[in-house]
Design a protein around this nucleic acid. Structure first.
Length: 502
RNA sequence: GCGCCCGUAGCUCAGCUGGAUAGAGCGCGGCCUUGCGGAGGCCGAGGUCACAGGUUCGAAUCCUGUCGGGCGCACCA
């Protein structure tokens, strides 16, 4: 983290959070980790920017948004400025050597930004159990221990000839992957090497452990734990998983595949088998949106990359504000003003719309985001699900008497079409949860969510509940109750607030 | 150059372990409300499933090729 979260990161967080929820619903014990890079070139650039750019942070601007600007500006300045490039290189070297003054600054800056990210995530009901700091992976000696361990393996060798001379490499005996360098000729570990060490810890085959500390930021409602080799001391029980699911964008397909293959080659066959890279394609900007953000437009190109380096992108906070406004405008009906205090926030509705949007597409397909059109609020959307739930709650509220929900329920001889249709949809729920828990395709789940909400809305329009009599009324109330229960569960899985009224 | 992914209504997308007239949302046209909140429901127009071959009783779905788009192929993370 080195700047404000943008919509590309949000796709990651929405998918990851929903996968965690669906797995929990399938009775897995799930631990959600957020990998915090506080040692790489990106953090260094932000650090350099804060140092070199003479600019005060405006009082009302969040720190991560300030860094967004700083990061873009320093990168633009560095293009022409040799002196800055040298400074960047020096900082990078110092951070790699764990020079205390630089490392500490990197960590505290990253911490401020992580905190801002966690705040942003809270608005979408996205949370984490543990923050793992890259610097702590080094401090905890994960790589050193792994290195010693690997030296005993036959296919981990020090090359003394060829282009990889002087490097320690893993030979994977595979046509697809060439031998992968783990230790460079200058003696430092590659990213894949550190990632392998991290995964040994994840799978519980590492003797060393982190120290832990609560991430005690008063602005957060729920505190995650954090690795902390400096101040941590708690003996906490993290890692040691049976399965690992890495939610990482598809551009990292190759390094992730190498990691998996390396696990296998080095004898961690079971772990390799239980390792999964959950891929998703990137988020692009539509032509009109890119144009609005000041990107140079190329004639035949209709999608543009997000680029923090160039300051091109939309932050999650800005998007949420924008959609919240749109929700306010769209539903200005004041008829129910008097019950306003029981309603959900417009922001919760906006969050539902945004979350749903990032979940509803096949995750392997690129999303082209357009500020004007992308986040819908009507139709096949998050708020539609919330609306259906609120309607059901309305009926239950009016019916209120528990006696309608008695055990000797009489199922009518002739089910009407809306009733039968709703029942059919309701019975699919357990299978859908199971299926999604197995394949982790979250978009199949949003498809079902929409069908179910639609089925209820059809029932709602065609089959009056409180207007019917006797057994039929009880039966329909039972269906409303069943729907309400199911939709609540479903919304929980999607991380969307289930409103009593809307 | 090599590898992986994608191309389905005007727009955004489901459907792809082969099976009946290819489904939704938005947009467009029409209908429904003195109420269990219309942020909704119903009906309609709109598609030679990129193109060309092949396998099959049967192909949007499987195979091959062409075109178009995305992503990779490090001693970077």
């Amino acid at each position: 983290p080195n700047k404000a979260m943008h919509i590309g990161h949000l796709r990651n967080s929405c998918i990851g959070d929903t996968v965690a929820r669906i797995l929990r619903k399938n009775n897995y014990e799930v631990e959600v980790q957020n990998y915090v890079d506080d040692t790489g070139v990106q953090v260094v650039d932000t650090l350099l920017g804060l140092e070199e750019i003479d600019k005060e942070k405006p009082e009302d601007q969040p720190f991560d948004h300030f860094c967004w600007d700083i990061y873009a500006e320093i990168n633009s300045r560095m293009k022409e400025d040799r002196e800055l490039q040298d400074k960047e290189e020096e900082l990078l070297r110092k951070i790699e050597e764990r020079d205390p003054s630089v490392a500490e600054r990197a960590r505290s800056t990253a911490k401020r930004i992580v905190n801002a990210h966690l705040k942003t995530c809270e608005n979408f009901n996205i949370g984490f159990d543990l923050l793992v700091w890259e610097s702590d992976i080094l401090e905890a000696g994960f790589w050193n221990q792994t290195f010693e361990e690997l030296k005993n393996k036959d296919n981990f060798t020090l090359k003394d000839f060829g282009p990889q001379s002087g490097c320690w490499v893993v030979e994977t005996d595979s046509d697809e992957f060439s031998d992968k360098v783990f230790v460079k000729s200058d003696g430092t570990a590659t990213y894949t090497a550190k990632d392998l060490a991290y995964h040994r810890w994840k799978f519980g085959v590492m003797d060393e452990d982190f120290k832990y500390k609560e991430f005690d930021d008063p602005t957060l409602e729920k505190q995650p734990w954090s690795s902390d080799m400096e101040e941590g001391n708690e003996e906490e029980d993290f890692g040691e998983g049976d399965r690992v699911v890495n939610v990482i964008d598809i551009s990292q397909r190759y390094p992730q595949a190498v990691l998996k293959k390396s696990l296998e080659s080095l004898g961690y066959e079971k772990q390799a088998e239980n390792f999964r890279h959950l891929k998703y394609a990137m988020v692009f900007l539509s032509l009109p949106t890119a144009e609005k953000l000041g990107v140079d437009i190329i004639e035949e190109k209709d999608q543009y990359s997000i680029s923090g380096r160039r300051g091109i992108g939309i932050t999650v906070d800005d998007l949420l504000d924008l959609i919240t406004e749109r929700v306010e405008e769209e539903f200005e009906g004041e008829e129910y003003e008097e019950i306003k205090e029981e309603e959900v926030d417009d922001q919760d509705i906006a969050a539902a719309a945004i979350r749903y949007h990032f979940l509803k597409y096949d995750s392997l397909k690129p999303v082209v985001f357009d500020l004007e059109d992308s986040i819908q609020v009507l139709g096949d959307t998050g708020p539609y699900l919330q609306y259906s739930y609120a309607r059901a709650q309305g009926i239950l509220r009016k019916a209120k008497k528990e006696e309608y929900l008695q055990e000797d329920l009489v199922v009518p001889e002739n089910l009407e079409d809306p009733e039968a249709h709703l029942i059919k949809l309701l019975t699919l729920f357990p299978d859908k949860v199971k299926q999604c828990g197995d394949d982790l395709d979250v978009n199949t789940f949003t498809d079902y969510a929409f069908d179910l909400a639609h089925g209820f809305n059809y029932f709602y329009e065609e089959a009056p509940v409180l207007g019917s009599e006797g057994d039929r009324k009880e039966f329909r109330l039972f269906l409303v109750k069943a729907f309400s229960y199911t939709m609540k569960n479903l919304l929980d899985i999607l991380g969307i607030i289930a409103p009593e009224r809307i």
